[in-house]
């Protein structure tokens, strides 16, 4: 399964809706999209992980890289995720303390 990324601008934020699997092979696509957004001065980003079936450490690494980029412009990345399996990998690595994680996009829009 490949990784599909839909981009939607809402209020002052950009929402990336991911669909598929994020691994070593597909993570560069997400990285490239995040870099493009920062280059376009989009520093408030919401990444919706609700339709992600799988994510490994390379996916986390890309999100961390994106967070570093937006933070250097006083921006933020918020996540939308209710899937226990995906949340588990954020908990294991302690990244629940780094990324604000919301249950819905509207909550994320309020919180980002």
């Amino acid at each position: 399964m490949d990784l599909k990324i839909d981009v939607e601008e809402k209020e002052e934020a950009v929402i990336l809706k991911l669909d598929g699997e994020v691994d070593v092979y597909t993570a560069p696509k997400l990285k490239s999209r995040l870099i493009d957004l920062v280059d376009q001065s989009k520093f408030k980003i919401i990444v919706n992980l609700e339709n992600i079936d799988f994510m490994d450490s390379s996916g986390l690494g890309v999100l961390v890289g994106g967070l570093k980029r937006v933070r250097s412009h006083d921006g933020a990345i918020a996540l939308v995720c209710t899937q226990e399996n995906i949340l588990k990998i954020f908990r294991i690595t302690g990244l629940v303390k780094v990324f604000p994680i919301f249950e819905t996009e509207s909550q994320a829009l309020q919180g980002v």
Binding site: S57, V64, L67, K68, T93, G94, V98
Partner: peptide
């Protein structure tokens, strides 16, 4: 990578 360290890599073995 520990808790809040913003490292890109190094999470494979902890996983």
């Amino acid at each position: 990578a520990l808790d809040t360290q913003l490292n890109y890599r190094g999470r494979g073995i902890p996983f």
